[in-house]
Design a protein around this nucleic acid. Structure first.
Lengths: 330, 330
DNA sequence: CCATCGGCTGGGAGCGCTCCCAATAATGCA
DNA sequence: TGCATTATTGGGAGCGCTCCCAGCCGATGG
């Protein structure tokens, strides 16, 4: 049986409250008493029961990270690694625990929702939100603080958000290609039920428009951010418009897929730019739009802790600025 | 303020206990009463407070997965994706929540240990354990059920384990090469401070011995599982024994490195077999020993739930059987 | 028509902890 | 040395829930 605070108190010859004060670092305990109590805690190998504590404090010191993707996606896309690293770094320095969940199926989702609403976490970080996801609004109703990574598609959703300026990033990529003399620039988009994809496509269009280039539906192909989908899209683009001279892919993985197809087709003349600037891009010499992913994770946590600390009434939207990293493929 | 069970009871015009019975699916509630209560629960959007519940039941319905690696490693190694998928699948079907943690630094570890010992989880799954890790024994002392993925190096550690039969896997690979008529089979091992590497080398030797082939130290080269180390080892092997006709590499990445060198050297005659059967192997047409990673996750959970359910006194070691996937490189 | 039985139901007790407030010990100052 | 303060300390109350046990009520049988 694990010892209780009462047993520690008895063992140290003090009252229950004094032990509690020591545990919570209260300054109003005499040094001598503190040492006695700490000795007792150690001797009994006492660990406070978090359930009991959180029942009264209404805090759990746990924050959930919900990634609305399958483990495959999560573990193969380096974007998540970066964000998670930022989150983990910022969170451990605040003494909170990170509860990481991946949920894609609807039964998983509802179990998760009950869990998150059940007071088991102080707040929720949401990543890779899809447009039909009711989680943010449900959390809002339940009063559970939440921060989204990436703006939701639904503009009616008044949630706190940390995002990257995807449109500006895509614009940078396309402008760069134009400056390098490319004119027939294709794009491979992400899934259009995610705002990132919409924004990156928007930035692509801005880039073309800004240079007075007319856009063509033939030069736009859809993917799902994966390497394979990038390859498939590239093949379709090459079939439709063999004259294209550049491709902007909305993710590094898709860019790599496109590169693979281009190489197989002997089309070294086509410039490629990706999005993310993941380690993969660096390794492959891929020009890419750098997302400050780690900062994003860090900022999400900062914002969430602020919300947990003392509810801010207004809505927060923090937009981080990407930049272009030029390498061999452009 | 979230409603309590008492408020639901008042709203439904029943007693506290009856609501509790409905929540926990007790059969001794009249159908009519049950419906009234469920209506009240719905109208009040009631969710039970898990802290209060777990304080009395001493269960949390949460299981922790601890991966002793940095997020980079975790997110780049396909092994983890497979295991996590198996774990998640098996766990959600049992209504428990998965709490995933990555911890590498020692400050992270001790925070984690306090957390795990604090009664916040019913059990712990450990992956990628390093030999100096005190976590399993500490958990044992605290009486927290734990299951390791992969046998620990320290044989004195009496923990419950789910592992893959690495020796048998390597044996399969070598026997396959022999059946294909290969006789001068080299191997590229992993780091020998890991039990997997030792086992895979053992299986390689078993394979040779079984076929009456004498082994030669010249045909054994060491690597560290990485692509680069595979290439380096392959060059050394070719230099020492240009007459070799096959290579068994203890990881897919090393096999790919070896393949690269062989291709550069124009040695298409040398057969190559890897280990892991990761997506990379499939993509490269590499014959490889398939590890049932997903099953491993699933079995870890099964074992853990059994331990949580009714403590089994004896030690469990479950060894899963790998199989060979034959592709173009052999 | 009344006693008996069993299925349902309600409320007390208590899980281990923090918070609050009263009580006590220690300290300072005249 | 005595009294006013202030620094420490201890214990009651209660967080929301489950478990246990006693009581209720309707149905059944005599």
């Amino acid at each position: 049986m694990r010892p209780t605070i009462e047993q520690v108190a008895a063992h140290a010859g003090v009252g229950r409250s004094t032990v509690s004060r020591v545990l919570n670092g209260s300054p109003k305990v005499r040094q001598k008493t503190r040492l006695t109590v700490q000795k007792a805690i150690e001797e009994l190998r006492y660990t406070p029961n978090r359930a009991a504590r959180s029942l009264v404090t209404r805090r759990t010191d746990t924050v959930a990270l919900v990634i609305s993707e399958s483990p495959e996606r999560v573990f193969s896309d380096p974007f998540f690694a970066g964000v998670v690293r930022g989150i983990a770094a910022q969170l451990t320095s605040s003494g909170k625990q990170l509860l990481m969940t991946m949920a894609r199926s609807s039964s998983e989702r509802s179990a998760l929702e009950a869990y998150l609403g059940g007071g088991h976490v102080d707040g929720v970080l949401l990543l890779s939100l899809h447009h039909d996801d009711p989680l943010p609004s449900h959390l809002g109703e339940l009063g559970v603080p939440a921060v989204l990574g990436g703006r939701p598609l639904d503009p009616g959703l008044t949630a706190h958000v940390v995002d990257v300026d995807n449109q500006a990033g895509a614009y940078l990529a396309v402008r760069h290609l134009i400056e390098r003399g490319r004119r027939r620039i294709a794009t491979i988009t992400g899934p259009m039920d995610m705002l990132v994809s919409v924004h990156r496509l928007g930035g692509y269009r801005d880039g073309l428009t800004g240079a007075g280039i007319e856009e063509s539906a033939e030069l736009v192909a859809g993917g799902d951010f994966s390497e394979r989908s990038g390859a498939v899209a590239m093949r379709a683009l090459l079939a439709r418009r063999p004259d294209l001279d550049a491709v902007f892919a909305a993710s590094d993985l898709m860019a790599l897929g496109a590169l693979r197809v281009l190489r197989e087709a002997g089309r070294a003349d086509v410039a490629v730019v990706g999005f993310d600037d993941s380690p993969l891009a660096e390794q492959a010499g891929l020009t890419s739009v750098h997302q400050p992913v780690e900062d994003m994770g860090r900022e999400m946590v900062r914002l969430l802790l602020m919300l947990i600390g003392g509810g801010t009434p207004s809505r927060f939207v923090l937009v981080l600025t990407p930049h272009l990293v030029t390498r061999e493929t452009s």
